[in-house]
């Protein structure tokens, strides 16, 4: 068990992100007292200005690396962290801001900012693992607070976390949800998306949006062909693969395939 008698120090870091994932820690309301009884929340600016110096036993890292400053800062976070966990779609795949990776970010900057010369940004928003070694990833937009609790529990007791990497379909089937793709013809990314949300969208009769990113052995082209037989136009298949995890390799493969075959790719 890491830490011995001393409580492990936990830090929460933010890069380019909306803060939703780190708020999942605060959302664990009924477990918060138990958590602070077992870990020292040493650095968590969203919760407290009071900070404790590193090094830290566990770092939860939210957000993508999108600026030159962040590209430097993440190296420092890595140095200060024994066990570094990337949390959420931004940190694990670049997030929704990685949509710019498919376009020219300078053109956006020129349109959006009155003084583009002040903006220092990288051409691509990228996941944490592209810059430093990541020890574990929690997927989702936002992450599942239950998976976060499970990860902290597993870390404290030195066991493997129970965080499956198979598809959302397994969760639908265990839960007794009727498949929306088969029963309604709704395009659903569940078969190529990693479980962890407890099949949230299909439970409410919506197709999966893929916010947990690609599952362990994704076949995005086969699912794309199925969407085609359902009458989904190529431009819409591109949009399905280009949301929260657009830059994750498998979803990128899916969207780029239809970009190459579609004349509507840039609408």
């Amino acid at each position: 068990m890491p830490g011995g008698q001393r409580k492990p120090k936990l830090a929460v870091w933010k890069f380019t992100s909306c803060d939703g994932c780190q708020l999942s820690l605060l959302d664990l309301e009924e477990h918060l007292l138990a958590i602070v009884g077992r870990v020292e929340i040493a650095y968590f600016l969203e919760a407290s200005r009071a900070t404790v110096r590193g090094p830290y036993d566990i770092s939860l890292v939210e957000g993508s690396i999108s600026t030159p400053h962040e590209a430097e800062l993440i190296k420092e976070v890595r140095k200060q962290s024994r066990f570094l966990v990337a949390i959420g779609a931004c940190a694990t795949a670049g997030g929704i801001q990685a949509l710019r990776n498919f376009a020219d970010v300078r053109a956006f900057v020129d349109i959006v900012y009155a003084h583009p010369e002040y903006i220092r940004t990288l051409r691509e928003a990228r996941p944490i693992a592209d810059y430093v070694t990541v020890d574990f990833e929690l997927r989702g937009c936002p992450i599942s607070r239950y998976q976060l609790l499970e990860l902290i529990s597993a870390y404290l007791h030195g066991r493997q976390p129970s965080i499956p990497t198979y598809s959302v379909c397994a969760e639908c089937k265990r839960k007794g949800v009727v498949c929306v793709l088969v029963s309604q013809g709704v395009p659903c990314l569940g078969p190529v998306t990693q479980a962890g949300c407890n099949a949230l969208c299909p439970t409410y009769r919506r197709g999966c949006y893929g916010c947990f990113g690609p599952m362990e052995s994704p076949n995005p082209l086969s699912l794309g062909r199925r969407f085609e037989t359902l009458g989904v136009p190529p431009a819409d298949i591109i949009r399905l693969y280009r949301t929260f995890n657009a830059f994750a390799p498998a979803f990128r493969e899916g969207s780029e395939h239809y970009e190459q075959t579609s004349s509507h790719a840039h609408d």
Binding site: Y166, C169, A170, K173, V192, M215, P218, S222, L223, R225
Partner: peptide, 9 residues
């Protein structure tokens, strides 16, 4: 394998 999604359904 080109068609199978390994989705477990």
């Amino acid at each position: 394998a080109t068609r199978c999604l390994a989705c477990t359904n």
